[in-house]
Design a protein around this nucleic acid. Structure first.
Length: 288
DNA sequence: AGCCAGGTCTGCG
DNA sequence: CGCAGACATGGC
């Protein structure tokens, strides 16, 4: 049990960062947050400029929360117009966490065509079914399952996790990582576009998932994931949709992605997160 | 009941 | 290449 004090010029909003849809294993219990990070239970609480912690070391927590990054400077770089300015203002202290690439890979395969609460549910049941029980502290805590653990079961067993059609993608991707454990490490060393190509070769990983994996798992801050919400925001505020566009096309998403990366620059991923977290305000939609 | 969700895959021209 | 449909599941 310890605490770190946030420097005034390096703000951080713990609750916002843990709950905004980039991490799926955090639960709020009173004013504490509890979650499993790389096989250990962490408990965190923010009181003003203090973050109290149980589980990690101070250095490990600082790295997870990316407190070394100059958030105000990043905000200043992407703060190019009133729309993104409003988004930045709406989510002060939002930080992109440094999470485990393997867990992020599987998480964003689960994230296709569903809601954030159900992604949490799927990740939770995968961990309960195939993770290892954590002995201390007491409680029903499970590590995120290893590639071997997810590659081993036959699909009937995976069925218990209610993954829908994603089960075969999870299984296939896990099998590939299990047989080549060094692959994720090599991806980390590749240039952005080559890393993206490799990710796209995994079953269940398309353009959007690949960009989320690059951003949240590999800390590639130029990645600009385009999902339904970002598409709506960009069409409404930045890029008029093509005449006669009915159903969203991959071609159009590619155009949005290229625009976002060029317009917001090397921190485009942060801009995307500000827009995503402020989506309710930017779309005048109260339904989340 | 019908539509939608932090999309991807397949099959066709 | 680009487009249309299919696809599991659950919430509203």
């Amino acid at each position: 049990m310890g605490f770190i004090r946030l420097r005034k010029d390096l703000p951080c909003d713990l609750a916002l960062s843990l709950s905004c849809g980039q991490a799926f294993r955090w639960e709020q219990r009173g004013d504490w947050w509890a979650g499993v990070v790389e096989g250990e239970v962490w408990r965190l609480r923010q009181v003003g400029d203090r973050i109290e912690y149980q589980g990690p070391t101070a250095a490990r927590l600082r790295d997870y929360m990316a407190l070394d990054l100059d958030l105000p400077a990043i905000q200043a770089v992407v703060d190019r117009d009133p729309v993104i300015h409003a988004a930045i203002t709406a989510c002060p202290g939002l930080r992109i966490l440094r999470q485990d690439p393997w867990e992020i890979l599987i998480s964003f395969i689960c994230a296709t065509n569903t809601h954030i609460p159900r992604i949490r549910q799927m990740i939770g049941s995968l961990s309960r079914c195939f993770g290892e029980r954590i002995s201390s502290p007491p409680g029903a805590w499970y590590s995120f399952p290893s590639p071997e653990a997810l590659a081993a079961p036959c699909r009937e067993t995976l069925d218990e996790c209610r993954l829908g059609y994603r089960d075969r993608y999870i299984h296939g991707t896990a099998a590939r990582i299990a047989e080549d454990p060094g692959l994720l490490g090599r991806i980390a060393a590749l240039p952005h576009d080559e890393a993206r190509e490799v990710l796209l070769s995994f079953p269940g990983v398309g353009p959007k998932a690949a960009d989320c994996i690059l951003l949240f798992g590999f800390h590639r801050y130029e990645a600009f994931p385009v999902d339904v919400w970002i598409r709506r925001i960009m069409h409404r505020h930045y890029l008029a949709p093509p005449q006669g566009m009915k159903t969203p096309s991959e071609k159009e998403d590619r155009r949005i992605r290229a625009f976002g990366r060029d317009y917001f620059g090397e921190w485009a991923g942060y801009a995307q997160e500000f827009l995503f977290c402020a989506r309710g305000d930017l779309l005048g939609d109260r339904t989340r």
